[in-house]
Every structure is written in C-alpha cells, then in structure tokens.
C-alpha cells in the first residue's frame, strides 16, 4: 500500500534534528519510522508519522522546509528471504528502487518503506 511520507530538508547544523523531534513530541505526533539521507552540507529526513497533515503544517509554521510525498509500504514476516521475493519481482519488471528503509511493525512483522522509480508499475506488480 501507499502511504504519505514527510521529507524534511535539514542544514547540517547542531540541534536542528533535535528541534524537529521536540516540536513533533510536544504536539503528540509519533515518529513511526525515519531515515536520513545525507550530503556534505544538508540532509533530508524521510519520516513516517502518526498524523502527516498535522506534522507538515506544524513544521512549515516553524520554518522547516517540508515536502510531502508517497512511498510504498510492504509488510512481511520477519524472516530470511521475505524481502527478496518482493525486490526480485521489481527488478524483473525493470523498476529501480531509489531508496528504502525498514522498521518493525505490529505482531512481529517487518515493514519496508520503498521509493520506486516508477510508482504506477510498482503498484501493478505489488498489487
């Protein structure tokens, strides 16, 4: 399934991530998963939260550069070979994975957030 993710541009500046995390915490918004893509001078935090619209509004009000975009969420048993099945299907169909990150879901499941090069094709394959 597809889910909305926040991408937040952060300058490499001491305390900037802490500021973001505190803001979300005070607003009772839970960070369910995130990853940081880093560069020499800035990073992009990709973040899945409990309330994406509220979080986006709050962060923009506090001058964070936020964009909202979609990623695919794959839920699977937390066991060897589970992910390989999916990514093989995608590569066979010619879909690149721009990035992905994994986290633990409910009931001992593993969850992977994935950004494909071709969202329409990816949706068709993963159903």
């Amino acid at each position: 399934m597809k889910i909305k993710q926040l991408s937040i541009f952060l300058q490499n500046k001491l305390g900037r991530f802490a500021e973001m995390a505190s803001l979300l915490g005070e607003a009772e918004i839970n960070m369910q998963a995130f990853t940081v893509a880093e560069n020499a001078e800035f990073g992009i935090v990709r973040l899945i939260v409990s309330d994406v619209d509220k979080a986006a509004k709050l962060l923009i009000e506090h001058s964070f550069a936020v964009s909202v975009n979609e990623v695919f969420l794959l839920e699977m048993p937390d066991e060897p070979g589970a992910l390989a099945v999916y990514v093989n299907k995608l590569s066979d169909a010619g879909v690149f994975i721009e990035y992905m990150y994994a986290f633990s879901g409910a009931n001992g499941k593993a969850v992977v957030a994935l950004k494909p090069s071709d969202a329409a094709l990816c949706e068709k394959i993963l159903g």
Partner: peptide, 13 residues
C-alpha cells in the same frame, strides 16, 4: 531554496 521546490530527492536539489 523556496519551499515549493523542496522535494524528497537530493538529486533534484
């Protein structure tokens, strides 16, 4: 960079 030109992609930036 203006807010509306921010994206998910380091490549674009």
């Amino acid at each position: 960079l203006k807010l509306e030109y921010h994206s998910d992609s380091i490549k674009n930036i």
